[in-house]
Design a protein around this nucleic acid. Structure first.
Length: 542
DNA sequence: GCCGTTTTCGGCCCGACTGTTTTCAGTCG
């Protein structure tokens, strides 16, 4: 889609304007860029419908630039800016510790136009004894310049979650005085990838906590270490920010550091209109701070219900909260089972028993085991064991023509696999959905992670019309579908099949994360697909 | 350049940390 590409161009304009020292406009371009990245609708479509201005952050001038881009594939304003600045200076801005002021000075006073130039200038000692460039700063600049070009690591959601859980458990174990602790930031908002980990804690002894944090065995380097906050880089390359506040301020801090930036800006401007202000400690009115210990306190002061972290992106959630029309959050209990378990038929009955045990321990009503559609070698299984109904699904590859060859007396549902690349054959998909519906077998379009994110999105309208569900899963590697597409599916009433995509029984624990991710797409309980109500399994007890 | 349930003009978050500063500027989140 053009959306991300154009967002990239807007970010570049913002950086160049920053270099020129222009106030406010860079942020306006960045706000618009963030909105474009999160816009599920294709820009071309929005333009045709005259809805471009509905995108938050697009006013008159930026709408014109979007239209120019859609017509010509370029933004002439950016082209003009590019001619006024050497191509390499944008790389300088991306260095740790280099902002617009420093980049500008390097350019004007030292003729530095690229990261290479900067290295040379430092080696030749040209920065030494210059105002503002002490020994430490020069060393930091050199280190940043030498590490330049390494792409900033963004971890997939499930991997970031594992690291956060481990770190938090360790800190709890090592710090008896620790009161409350939570991950915040984009991990708590359940973004599909996490650039750095934010952890918010409360403790009466912050310095001991900071000490425990910076000396944790998985810490590679300590970037920053103050009285109440610290930044480290882990061996895995992930950056982690820790913030310690007094217990009475915990709610305000958690809200503040969960973000998103745009969501918080929106809340703060609402607060100003109501005559108070919000910061990471609480609410202040006439210079008098009232500490806020629970997040609800921040939202309550604005007359809002608590907005789920997954929705805090300034994508309409504040207006929905004001209108009391936030989607009610589905409970984990509303997921009655896991239907995407791959069981190797040769693994035998013991493995199946292990799965059933795990499903029963989770309180699930059913478990669905998936085999290739025409495979007939699966073990004979009881229909119910330990209170868990056992269902068998058939995996059907695109273009789904084998639907007619499968013995549906032995299969309760179908997982339809997408074509590995290119457009969906809607005729073939429609035929398969009709055929399955005729046989009373639910169908789920699944394994979307096998397609590149840049490929055509699934035909949501067709799925909605014919009652096909869509898998929203989290594998050990990442999410199976971008959240903008999940939101689009929800808006078109496509049922979502939430899955932890387990490879081992422990992975069933990922189901909560998968549900959170569906919530990020504004899913409510009625959007969730379940296998309840399907015919009883036809398998005879073994 | 955007935005408005006090506004079509005048705002636009602000606190922590670092380095080099003798009182603060720049960067970051």
């Amino acid at each position: 889609m053009a959306n991300e590409e154009l967002a990239g161009l807007f970010y570049e304009i913002a950086d160049l304007l920053d270099l020129e020292g222009v106030p406010f406009r860079p942020e306006a371009y960045r706000r618009a860029a963030r909105a474009l990245e999160q816009e599920p609708e294709d820009l071309e479509m929005l333009r045709k419908q005259g809805r471009l201005k509905d995108v938050k952050g697009l006013g008159e001038a930026l709408t014109k630039k979007v239209e120019e881009y859609l017509e010509s594939g370029k933004v002439s304003y950016l082209e003009k800016l590019r001619t006024q600045h050497p191509a390499g200076v944008l790389d300088l801005l991306r260095l740790e510790g280099v902002g617009p002021k420093t980049a500008g000075r390097l350019m004007v006073e030292f003729g530095v136009q690229s990261v290479e130039d900067l290295k040379k200038a430092i080696m030749e000692g040209r920065l030494r004894d210059q105002k503002g460039f002490g020994e430490k700063r020069i060393a930091a600049l050199l280190e940043a310049a030498q590490g330049a070009g390494l792409a900033h690591l963004r971890l997939p959601l499930p991997k970031a979650q594992l690291i956060a859980d481990g770190l938090i458990a360790d800190l709890q174990k090592r710090c008896a005085h620790l009161q409350r602790i939570s991950y915040a930031g984009s991990l708590r908002r359940r973004r599909e990838t996490v650039g750095d980990l934010d952890i918010v804690t409360s403790s009466a002894r912050p310095s001991e906590l900071i000490e425990a944090f910076t000396s944790h065995p998985s810490v590679k380097t300590v970037r920053l270490k103050g009285d109440t906050k610290s930044t480290v880089v882990l061996d895995s390359g992930l950056q982690v920010d820790l913030r310690v506040v007094p217990n009475e301020n915990y709610g305000a801090a958690l809200q503040y550091f969960t973000g998103s930036k745009d969501h918080n800006v929106r809340l703060r401007s609402m607060a100003l209109q109501k005559g108070f202000s919000i910061n990471e400690y609480g609410i202040s009115r006439n210079g008098q701070l009232t500490p806020i210990s629970e997040e609800e306190g921040i939202y309550g002061a604005l007359g809002l219900p608590l907005i789920p972290p997954e929705l805090r992106e300034d994508r309409g959630e504040v207006d929905a909260a004001l209108a009391k029309s936030l989607p009610p959050r589905p409970s984990l209990g509303s997921l009655r089972g896991e239907i995407h378990i791959h069981l190797n038929p040769s693994a035998g009955v013991e493995m199946l028993a292990k799965w059933i045990e795990a499903l029963a321990n989770k309180g699930f009503a059913y478990g669905g085991f998936v085999f290739p559609g025409t495979d007939r070698s699966f073990p004979a299984v009881p229909s119910i064991s330990k209170g868990v109904r056992i269902l068998r699904g058939a995996e059907v590859p695109s273009p789904w023509v084998t639907v007619g060859e499968i013995d549906w007396k032995e299969r309760e549902y179908a997982l339809l696999l997408p074509p590995p690349r290119g457009a969906y054959d809607e005729k073939a998909l429609g035929d398969a959905l009709h055929e399955l519906s005729r046989r009373g077998r639910p169908a789920i379009l699944a394994h979307l992670e096998t397609r590149a994110p840049s490929e055509t999105p699934p035909p949501f309208e067709l799925l909605a019309k014919l009652g096909g569900a869509l898998e929203v899963g989290i594998t050990s590697e990442g999410v199976t579908l971008e959240s903008t597409l999940v939101r689009k599916a929800v808006s078109l009433h496509v049922p979502l099949s939430v899955s932890s995509r387990p490879e081992r029984t422990e992975d069933l624990g990922r189901l909560g994360l998968a549900l959170d991710f569906a919530v990020r797409g504004w899913a409510k309980e009625s959007d969730l697909f379940r296998l309840e109500g399907t015919p009883a399994p036809l398998v005879r007890a073994a």
